[in-house]
Simulated scan of single mutants.
Amino acid sequence: MPVLHQINPIAISLGPLKVHWYGLMYLLGFAMAWWLGRRRVRAGRLPGVDDNGFGDLMFYSMLGVVLGGRIGYILFYDFGEFLKDPLLIFRVWQGGMSFHGGLLGVLVAIIWWSRRHRLHVFDTLDFIAPLVPAGLGFGRIGNYVGGELWGKPTQGTLFDGWGVVFPRALPEPFASMDSATLRTYFDSGVLNAFARHPSQLYQAALEGLVMFCVLVWYSRRPRPRFAVSGLFALLYGCFRFLVEFVREPDAQLGYLAFGWVTMGQVLSTPLIVLGLFWLWKSRSAPTLQPEPR
């Protein structure tokens, strides 16, 4: 049975101040990463680093997520519009963040931080990897609450009769209707034809919950260098590649090849390759031993 999406994206409204659920999801993701990271630091999983050093790592990583995510979105998904209007990159309130751009931003931050602390970059990456999925999961929930990045229509497929009707994805005149009128049409069954995959929730489950459980379990004891990072890259690349089959491609890009290849799949393929390579490389790599505080 389809569900009508009618969630207010604004969590708190105090006069001109409006706090969106998407922003709160980001905060929850960072809070979860901070909590888990401090536990791992105190368990000695990053020898020679104290709470202050970890705080610096988290700060620079957060900058990498935000700056890299925004710049990556512009370069990967909206470069044509950026050339027409360069100030577009600063209009973050209009939406547009890229995981792959955020990942590159975090990598830059980690490389810089690791060199300052004289640590092997992959020791830091292996430490950080289990902290990331919670943020991915909360972020995708934020996408769902905001009614954005929806999936493909389910009507006429194996999933017929299932899905979510996203008001922002509806054609006119439905897209302009108020919530009460839209509810009336939905209850009559007229809008069932516009039900879509809640791909945001699929990603929240796979990239968030499943990856979090697997990586925390896998890293519960010391693993060879490259192993945890490799598993992260492999899992994310595979999960993102698969979900793209039921996710609506970005309107400004569409499909890039063969009538089904999306930008998300193109960007995720190198992660799958890197993940396999790093896991193979970990077989002969040293294992960093913890130094509990």
Rank of each mutant, 00 (worst) to 15 (best):
M1A: 09
V3H: 07
P9Q: 12
P9R: 06
I10D: 09
L14H: 11
L17S: 06
W21A: 01
W21Y: 10
G23C: 10
Y26F: 02
G29H: 03
F30W: 13
F30P: 02
R40F: 12
R40K: 13
G44Y: 09
L46Q: 07
P47K: 09
G53T: 10
G53H: 03
D56L: 09
F59K: 01
Y60H: 09
Y60F: 15
V65M: 06
V65S: 00
V65A: 05
L67R: 00
L67K: 00
L67Q: 05
G68T: 06
G68L: 03
R70Q: 07
I71M: 13
I74M: 01
F76M: 08
E81T: 11
E81L: 06
L83N: 09
K84Q: 15
K84L: 15
V92T: 15
Q94H: 15
G96N: 01
G96E: 10
M97W: 14
S98G: 03
F99R: 08
L103S: 08
V106L: 11
V106M: 11
L107T: 03
L107G: 05
I111H: 09
I111Q: 14
W113T: 11
R116P: 06
R118E: 14
T124N: 08
I128S: 08
L131E: 06
V132N: 07
L136I: 14
G137N: 12
G139Y: 00
G139H: 01
I141K: 07
G146C: 12
G147T: 12
W150A: 06
W150N: 03
G151S: 01
P153A: 04
P153W: 04
Q155T: 13
D160R: 01
G163V: 05
G163M: 06
A169N: 02
E172M: 15
P173L: 14
F174D: 15
A180H: 12
T181K: 04
Y185F: 15
G189I: 10
A193Y: 00
A193S: 04
F194M: 02
H197V: 12
A204N: 12
L206T: 05
L206N: 05
L209M: 00
V210T: 12
V210K: 00
C213I: 15
V214I: 14
V216G: 08
S219D: 10
R220M: 14
R220I: 11
P222A: 02
F226S: 08
A227L: 07
G230A: 03
F232C: 02
A233F: 09
G237V: 13
R240C: 02
L242D: 05
E244T: 11
F245P: 02
V246L: 01
Q252C: 11
Q252F: 04
G254K: 04
G259Q: 07
W260A: 03
V261E: 11
T262A: 00
Q265R: 00
L271P: 04
V273F: 09
L276V: 11
L276M: 04
F277D: 00
F277K: 10
W278V: 02
L279V: 03
L279N: 00
W280T: 02
K281E: 13
S282T: 03
R283L: 07
R283C: 08
R283D: 10
P286L: 02
Q289A: 09
P292R: 01
R293E: 14
